[in-house]
Structure formats: C-alpha cells, structure tokens
C-alpha cells in the first residue's frame, strides 16, 4: 500500500478530505495491546472510526488506487449513514457511482444509496428504485443477491 496506493495524490486527497489518518506497524511490541483490542488479524487492516473511537466500517487486503478510493468512500459514506447524516452519505455514494462505477465497491454504493434515501424518507420509492438499478447494472454482484428477496414471486 505504501509503495503503490498511498502515494497517489487522488488517494491522499480522498483520505484527508474525510478522515484523520493514523497508522500502526503490527510488528512493533508497542502496538500489541491496541491491536489486540482491535482484534487485528490481517494486513492491511483498515478501520473507519468516529471521534469517540467507535468503529463504523472496516475492510482489509491490498487495493490498487481506484479500488481503494471507491472502498474508502463507501466506508466514509456508511459511517455517515450509521450516524444518520443522510445528505452526506448520499453525496458520497453518488460520487462513487459517478466516478468509480466499474469498481468492486460500486454495487455496495448503489445498494446503500437506496437504503440512505429510504431511511431519510420512508415514504419514497427510492429503495426499490435503486435496487432495480442494481439488478440492471450489477446483476452478478453480491449486493444483487442481498436484495433478491424482492425478486421472489
């Protein structure tokens, strides 16, 4: 990550726009207690936390720059969504779908765009509307399966 992904200016811009970055070396004894508390098992191990230290999103494994940006944006969007900051979450999901529509994170963005709009306004038809878009745009994704109960006869 330090050699390929993190040096890229768009990656830096994405991270600093939404978060304070903090990094820990898992080979150092001084980090052992913290990593035990985080139930750390594999690297790179990424967590999105709010200012109180509550973990709101996580992923692990190497991702090249476009995939990392899209995944990180989905993380920040879900962190906003869990805090019921619907407008902020929606803006980020739309950004992922606009700029990173071919990434592995994009189906998640479309799934949760529907959830975000539904949570903001339960009377709207945005949940089913966005999930219909999901079936059309990402028919083989895991997130299509997650809404597949809506496809039952």
């Amino acid at each position: 990550m330090d050699a390929v992904t993190y040096p890229q200016p768009p990656v830096v811009a994405t991270v600093v726009a939404h978060a304070v970055p903090v990094q820990f070396d898992n080979s150092k004894a001084e980090n052992k207690e913290l990593l035990s508390r985080l139930h750390h098992i594999w690297t790179p191990d990424l967590r999105v936390m709010d200012g109180s230290g509550s973990e709101l999103y996580r992923w692990d494994g190497f991702l090249p720059p476009p995939e990392f940006i899209a995944r990180a944006l989905c993380g920040f969007a879900q962190a906003h969504l869990r805090r019921r900051e619907f407008e902020k979450a929606e803006a980020i999901y739309v950004d992922v779908l606009t700029r990173f529509s071919t990434t592995y994170a994009a189906p998640e963005a479309l799934y949760y765009l529907g959830v975000t709009r539904y949570r903001r306004d339960p009377q709207s038809d945005e949940l089913l509307s966005q999930w219909a878009n999901l079936r059309s745009r990402y028919p083989t994704s895991e997130y299509r399966v997650k809404q597949s109960f809506k496809e039952l006869p």
């Binding site: 330090d2 970055p21 990094q23 070396d25 109180s52």
Partner: peptide, 30 residues
Amino acid sequence: MIEWMHDLDAALKRAREESKFVLVDVFNPG
C-alpha cells in the same frame, strides 16, 4: 504521501476537532 499519525487518542481528538472520521491502517513492514 499521506501524513500518518501514530497515536490513536491524538487522532481521535483531532477528528473531533475537525469533524472528520479517523482512518486506521494497520500494516506489516514485511
């Protein structure tokens, strides 16, 4: 390059001050 902090409590405090999240990255130097 990303300017990483290395103190979680200090990062959480800064996040509260700047109304941002904290992005934690645990890495292995090998």
